[in-house]
Structures are given as C-alpha cells and as structure tokens.
Design a protein around this nucleic acid. Structure first.
Length: 262
DNA sequence: ATGCCGAAGTTACTTCGA
C-alpha cells in the first residue's frame, strides 16, 4: 500500500489556464488529475509543457467546447474515449468522457452536460447521458478492482450543495430528475466521497465569476468523486482546494483532491 | 482580502457555461 493523490478539476480552458495548471501541479503534487472543459481539440492541448512537468496525458477534445483529459505520473494505460451508447447532441459526438488505468486505479474523467434549462433539449440529453454513464459504469463499479468516476456532474446532490436553493427555482442542477439519475449511478455501487472544506461550512467546488459569488461564498458542490467499495476502502482524506479559485486567471471551479492508499 | 464574468471563434458580436 502506498499513498496516491488523485484530483478532478474543471479547468475552463486548458490553454488559457496552462500557467495556473503547471503551478498547481507543482504546489499540489497530484499523481493523477482528471480535467474537464479543455475547450480545445485534443491536438491543441499543450502536451509538451505538461510532459515537461512530469505527467503523461490522455486527452479527448473536439473543439471550442467540452473536452476531457487524464494526467498521470504513475502510468496511464487502457485509454478509452466516450461511453457505450453515449447519446449525441445536435448530431455531434461530444468529448465528455475519457477513461484510463493509472497505477492500481481505473478511473474516468467525466463532464456531464449542463442541461441549460428544464425546457431545453439539452435537459433530456443530460438525463440520457447520465443513464449511459450508469450502464457503462455498472460493470467496473461492481468489480474487485479500485474504480472511480471523477468529474463535473453538473448536479447538486442535495439542497445543502447550493448556497441557497431558493435562488434557483425550477432550474437545472437541483431537480428531482437529475438527483434520481445520480442516485441510480450510486446504486450501481458507487459512493460520493464527501470532501473537507478548507474554509466555511460546506465544500463547494464552483463559484460563478459574476456578482462576487466567490467572496460571498455563493457556491455549488457539483464536482464529485464517485468510488466503488475497493476504492472507498482506500480513501484516507479528501478536500476541495478552494485556494486555487483565488486570484487573477482562476477557473470558476476548484480542484477536488483525494488521498488513496492503494 | 478571495472583489463585481470569462473563453473562444470571429472581428462587433455570439454562444456557452451554472
């Protein structure tokens, strides 16, 4: 058994955020990082700079939106892009899932569709994506090997996971349908690892750039780490690195970090 | 202080995000 530090971070453009990413890799020393919202094609990812920092990278990106990646300094094998039966939106295959085996851990980096509005076609697309996620995850979730699904789920699991649920009447991220879809995924054998907050009462992971939301701590907990039983048994600590949300050029999401004894 | 939105494609504005 040896410690392994695994993180998930919606970076909101890997190109615009490259300096922050490299600085965070140096200061936080993660072994594996799941990234979401690369906002560029896979061939435009700044691979050389990331490799120079000591990480291998597997990326899945198609253009200006979406895009996911896994960075690892403990090996990266058996890379798979997309879900079995992943739904399409506007006849496009979106880059929202990439899987790899890093050390003893099988993990996925996932960017769940936003949903936009409950009356928008993007909302049933979000629910269909979550169903495909459950179907594809069920096998490894029930298996004997450590397995984790990490990423931006765009769902607040409970009313406590938003600063004030009354502020979002009838909107996405807090509906019964989304929470039921998340509960279905968890029923396949996955547990939502609840991280420590480094400040304030609750470990929010996202704060909008607008309206002083970060200083006022008007946040959401939507970046999650779902782990199967063998992985859960290895978790020794978890936290949200809210310090990375501070300052000029920050992403609007903070990294979620897990310590595992694998 | 953590501070009033930001990225990207395109070129004055649009789409997207939560």
């Amino acid at each position: 058994m040896r410690p392994m530090r695994v993180a998930t971070w919606n970076i909101n453009s890997v190109k615009a955020r490259l300096d922050r990413l490299l600085g965070w890799l140096e200061s936080a020393q993660p072994d594996v990082v799941c990234l979401q919202e690369l906002k560029c094609a896979a061939e435009e990812v700044p691979v050389a700079a990331i490799e120079a920092a000591g990480y291998e990278i597997a990326a899945h990106g198609t253009g200006r939106w979406n895009g996911v990646a896994i960075l690892s300094r403990v090996g990266i094998d058996d890379i798979v892009r997309g879900l079995e039966g992943q739904p399409r939106f506007a006849e496009a295959d979106e880059a929202r899932v990439i899987a790899a085996t890093c050390g003893r851990l099988r993990l996925w980096s996932v960017y769940v569709p936003n949903g936009r509005d409950v009356t928008d076609a993007h909302f049933p697309y979000k629910l269909a994506f979550l169903e495909a996620l459950k179907s594809t995850a069920a096998g490894p979730a029930a298996g004997p090997a450590p397995f984790a699904v990490l990423g931006d789920f765009n769902i607040c699991p409970s009313d406590d996971d938003i600063w004030d649920v009354e502020e979002w009447p009838g909107t996405t991220h807090v509906t019964k349908a989304e929470r039921a879809a998340l509960a279905e995924i968890e029923s396949a054998g996955l547990t939502d690892v609840f991280p420590r907050a480094l400040k304030h009462a609750w470990p929010f992971t996202f704060w909008d750039y607008r309206n002083l939301d970060f200083p006022k701590n008007r946040g959401l907990r939507i970046d999650l780490a779902l782990v199967n039983a063998p992985c859960k048994n290895a978790v020794t600590d978890a936290w949200v690195d809210r310090n990375e949300r501070k300052g000029k050029g920050a992403s609007d999401h903070a990294p979620v970090v897990l310590e595992l004894d694998l």
